[in-house]
């Protein structure tokens, strides 16, 4: 379970996240949608314990991230949007290190690593340095790293970037299967189709606030947009580009 209460993050005078309230119960895949700079990544990084909120609270599995960070983090798997890994470690070494960060070691971890590498088709690359990996392979490696300790909550920032269609499909199935077994997933994405197909509920974040949240039907109802696709609904809430802007850029 994830619960955000009045979550706020300020950088000097700039408010990146402004009093967000959200609850994601176990067994739910929740989507965070919003234009660039809306505050999605900042929210996710606060949930993951990387950023400290200016005010408000984050509960992960019922545990306060600020009061008991180590316990809260032990329940969490975080997948960032940019797959930065240690270039000079092999895939196997990276996963072993990731498991050790959660206090795990031994033959059970080795078996788990092999399962994950197999699932993400990285077994032939296990002993190769990650600097030789493609972007997509790195992305798959950090997804494997987030799953190695069997978390109860997964927080994902733009999960499909860099993945080929086959891997993207695998990840979708994996996350759906994870929530069907009682896990919690909070995912940010720009891809409307993914959000529409995968998420049980969606929040549209705009300028640091939740502009609307609920199931697709609830969103349409809240915004009086019956029959609208998620993309149209999103653009209605957040605004879109103007024709003259396109003309200016393309010199038409």
């Amino acid at each position: 379970m994830i619960r955000l209460t009045e979550l706020t993050k300020r950088y000097g005078k700039f408010t990146a996240v402004d009093g967000i309230e959200l609850v994601v119960p176990p067994g739910e895949l929740f989507g965070l949608l919003g234009p660039n700079g809306a505050g999605k990544t900042t929210t996710i990084r606060m949930i993951a314990g990387i950023l400290r909120p200016t005010s408000g609270t984050v509960l992960v599995g019922g545990i306060d991230m600020q009061a008991r960070p180590l316990e809260a983090k032990a329940r969490l798997g975080y997948i960032p949007d940019r797959p930065f890994v240690y270039d000079k470690l092999t895939g196997g070494e990276f996963l072993r290190f990731a498991a050790a960060l959660y206090g795990l070691q031994g033959p059970a971890v080795e078996r788990r690593m092999d399962e994950l590498l197999e699932l993400f088709e990285l077994t032939p690359w296990k002993t190769e340095l990650t600097e030789a990996y493609s972007h997509g392979m790195r992305q798959k490696l950090i997804i494997a790293g987030a799953l190695v300790h069997r978390p109860e909550v997964i927080v994902v920032d733009e999960p499909m970037i860099g993945l080929d269609p086959r891997s993207a499909r695998l990840l979708k199935e994996l996350l759906r299967e994870f929530v069907s077994r009682g896990g919690t997933v909070l995912m940010s994405t720009h891809t409307m189709e993914i959000a529409e197909v995968m998420c049980d509920r969606i929040a549209i974040v705009y300028r640091g606030r939740v502009a609307a949240q609920g199931t697709m039907a609830e969103l349409r109802q809240q915004t009086s947009s019956e029959g609208m696709s998620l993309e149209d609904l999103f653009l209605k809430l957040t605004g879109g580009h103007q024709r003259h802007q396109l003309d200016a850029v393309l010199g038409a």
């Binding site: 990387i50 990731a98 950090i142």
Partner: peptide, 13 residues
């Protein structure tokens, strides 16, 4: 630096 996301999001003291 760039790998701090991993260390900070894990229960590493």
């Amino acid at each position: 630096g760039r790998q701090m996301w991993l260390l900070r999001s894990s229960p590493l003291d």
